[in-house]
Design a protein around this nucleic acid. Structure first.
Lengths: 210, 210
DNA sequence: TAGGCGTTCTTTACATCGTAAAGATTCATG
DNA sequence: CATGAATCTTTACGATGTAAAGAACGCCTA
């Protein structure tokens, strides 16, 4: 017997997206520990197990969220590369004959760090493979896109098989600075630095020679 | 009325250490998610809440474990610096006049990465500040020791306020490579590299110029 | 258009977890 | 030897992930 008299219909219509949005909110508000299936469904106003048909387990929800993160990261990296050089620098570049590709690669690195700082908890989730299910097709596809875009970190090719090691070195540096900054580990170093702003300090750290 | 007739005494004697050892075992076996207060006490053969007098909450247990990790990391870094140069290289160093400090700094970086690869889950725990309680004196002290030892990453001083940025750059590179390797992110890059071994690849990535 | 089926969502249930509180036991200190 | 502090157990409670069964809905087909 149909006893539903209130306005909310039995079927939500777009519950998967609503749950993902709620999950992202919870993640931003309380970090990874605050991301729970029950919390997500509670915020979306549905029953405690309503996420099961869409994501299965908690790891499924996390993976769907991480997939979105990888999509956004891939977009941010390719956008940083395509929008380079910025308009205000094109005149200078033409006159001085400065190298375009290296600084374009720097712009990609800056975009990587900017994404991490803008979405710290999502970024951490994306790189905790133990919490994710890489068998999910959407996650594997999005991560692949991001890794492909990551090659823009390297501005120029390098002879021999050293290209992979070079990529890893560049990636390691931007990734390490990103996670150290997210976890608040750079506080003491930042205090003894010239630039008071975190992004300025990270910029200097990126440019400092090894 | 005393009804205890079995051999196990009511007081354990060294439960704190036993719990920490059990915690470390659980961490190595099942990762961060497997580290639970109840699991630790279960493995130690005591009641479910026996850890409370020693560590308080779960975050307290994690912090005590992380403190041990920082102690070990500090030891590993200082040992790597003090044991440099290795005996087989001292003759070459004297004859060629090679720079000692930069390669000693490399040895410190290698020790950092070696520690992370040898204790992946402990390493991850140490750098997740949201899970730790830095008000605990032992954790703050051990972390301070490790950060002090970390300065050995920089082989020589640098003029002006750029020293902090240089330190961050060096730290970021070794830390980033360590966490990327731990999370299995370097697989695709490793496949297209010369050296098949992970440590050899990381070595090449460290030396690759930016 | 009516019936049936798969999907979506709810309800119920259960094991496990962190943690608080109170009691039992032992140690230490006077 | 007595008293209090520290250690450990027992009990209890709310929250979580997940499994299973049932209700409501959309859709496809006869």
């Amino acid at each position: 017997m149909d006893v539903r008299t209130d306005a909310t219909p039995y079927h939500h219509g777009d519950l998967a997206n609503a749950l993902l949005q709620a999950a992202r909110d919870l993640l931003e508000e309380g970090g990874l520990e605050a991301l729970s299936l029950r919390g997500v469904t509670r915020r979306a106003g549905v029953s405690a197990t309503a996420a099961v048909p869409h994501f299965g387990t908690l790891s499924g929800l996390r993976s769907a969220l991480a997939a979105r993160g990888y999509d956004e990261l891939a977009d941010a990296l390719t956008r940083a590369r395509e929008n380079f050089p910025p308009a205000e620098l094109s005149a200078q570049r033409e006159s001085s004959g400065g190298r375009q590709y290296p600084t374009a690669a720097q712009a990609v690195g800056n975009a990587y760090i900017a994404f991490a700082l803008a979405n710290p908890d999502l970024f951490q989730l994306m790189f905790r493979n133990a919490l994710l299910d890489h068998d999910r097709a959407d996650l594997a596809a999005a991560a692949g896109r991001a890794f492909e875009a990551l090659r823009l970190l390297s501005g120029h090719e390098v002879p021999g098989g050293a290209q992979a090691a070079r990529m890893a070195g560049l990636w390691g540096r931007v990734h390490g600075l990103a996670v150290l900054a997210i976890d608040g580990m750079l506080g003491p170093l930042l205090k003894g630095a010239e630039s008071a702003s975190l992004t300025g300090f990270l910029q200097a750290a990126l440019e400092a020679a090894g």
